[in-house]
Amino acid sequence: MPTLVSVFDRPQDIVSAVKRLRNRGFTDLETYSPAPFAEIDDAMIEKPSRVRAFTLVGGLAGVTTGYTITIWMANNWQIMLGGKPFSSIPPYTIIAFELTILFGGLMTALGLFIVGKLGRKRDPEYSPRFSAEEFGLVVRCQDRDVAEIEALVRDNHATEVELVGA
């Protein structure tokens, strides 16, 4: 399958190229950018990131664990302290609060690795220039579409277009 790698200088150019390609029905796209640009990511992926689900699950697990271990442990071997109830919610809320953040934060980090597909080999199209200041757009397409795509990205101020992997 032919793969077109085009290079852009400005984020707004790659955004309009992505939008036009997607309108034309080319969906096998990937972009590389040297810095976070929400407009590029939003043009590529419309849905909000699934990382949010990880944070929620982690936070809920943390708050549950916090209250469960404190209440269970205090009642497992009851020791009267200051005449206060064994299941004292106010002090245990501090433990539950800290564990909410601890578990939520760790799950968020795990979410980044899973959702962002980290810990894998880089794509062959990736180049160190995309960690300098240029933007890369990779389109996988049918042979008959190469000319159209090339014209389209050049129209959007692509500075270079290269055909790899015919």
């Binding site: 972009t31 990511d41 590529m44």
Partner: peptide
């Protein structure tokens, strides 16, 4: 960790930083 600045990675990264 195989970072390449793809849209998927940046999107997840921005969301992670926010959370």
């Amino acid at each position: 960790c195989g970072w390449q600045g793809s849209s998927k990675q940046w999107k997840a990264h921005s969301r992670t930083t926010l959370h």
